[in-house]
């Protein structure tokens, strides 16, 4: 790790000012990606601004059909939340299966989606549930938030405050885990909502994305057999030592079918 200046602001406004004034600042939430990267000397920010001291960024509130989860809420808190388990059990289950207990006790929703690892779990939920990302400047629709590998719609120095998740009729997330990292080789999140079915895929391609073709298939009837004719496009899939593009495309279909079946 290289030397850096450490800051621990008490408010979002203070954090915004610190990041704006830093030569090469980085916000740190749970630090589950940033700190290992720094330890490996692959990142060398001049300033690290720790969001852990900002009370307003943490917490879970249910208001009518909207579940609002603060950006600094840990995976363990989401997994254990009786409100989330009641309103969107698939989201609590997703959080409960990220990494290991150490990761879940440190890692946060905001950190996960801001980093936008192509194999992260939360982006699939944010997209498929039709979530809204609230920042210190604006609201961004979940499906517009994730723009590319490790890239998001966040502007320079913009800070995620919370994510609003509308309560679905039913939802499920199926993850096929990388045996080493236990990140998603493929993860499919499906939601049955009053309006229409929604689906998102993570791990399979460069960036988590809404799965329109799965949604179209499910429009006819929300059942796993509706996906019998569905084929994910092999040419869009990631290919690496853990899974070829062909295998990933196959897994998208299988995970989608299983997620739909689990919604029943």
């Amino acid at each position: 790790m290289y030397e850096f200046s450490y800051h621990r602001p008490a408010s979002v406004a203070e954090a915004a000012e610190l990041i704006a004034n830093a030569a090469d600042g980085k916000l740190v939430a749970g630090g589950q990606t940033l700190l290992p990267t720094m330890k490996h000397r692959l990142a060398s920010p001049s300033d690290v601004i720790d969001l852990g001291g900002i009370a307003e960024l943490s917490g879970i509130v249910v208001n009518g059909n909207i579940v609002t989860i603060g950006a600094m809420t840990t995976h363990a808190e989401v997994a254990a939340s009786s409100e989330v388990r009641e309103a969107i059990p698939a989201l609590a289950a997703l959080a409960d299966n990220i990494g290991d207990p150490a990761v879940r006790n440190r890692g946060t929703l905001g950190g996960s989606i801001a980093n936008n690892d192509p194999a992260a779990d939360y982006p699939a939920a944010v997209i498929a549930l039709g979530g809204t990302v609230r920042t210190n400047r604006r609201e961004i629709a979940g499906e517009d938030f994730f723009t590319g590998m490790f890239e998001t719609a966040l502007e320079e120095d913009e800070i995620i405050v919370a994510v609003d998740f509308p309560r679905p009729e039913a939802a499920s997330y199926m993850k096929f885990e990388n045996p080493a990292s236990r990140y998603a080789i493929v993860g499919v999140f499906v939601a049955r909502t009053a309006a229409k079915p929604r689906a998102a895929v993570t791990g399979a391609t460069a960036c988590a994305h809404r799965a329109f073709r799965i949604e179209e298939s499910l429009q006819a009837g929300f059942g796993s057999s509706a996906l019998d004719g569905f084929e994910a496009p092999v040419d869009k899939m990631n290919s690496d030592i853990h899974a070829s593009a062909e295998y990933r495309a196959h897994l998208v279909k299988i995970m989608a079918q299983r997620a739909v079946a689990a919604c029943a």
Binding site: N178, P179, A180, S181, Y183, I241, H242
Partner: peptide, 11 residues
């Protein structure tokens, strides 16, 4: 070495 960490080498 492509599998030089526990992210890629499965114990």
């Amino acid at each position: 070495l492509v599998t030089a960490s526990y992210m890629d080498y499965a114990m």
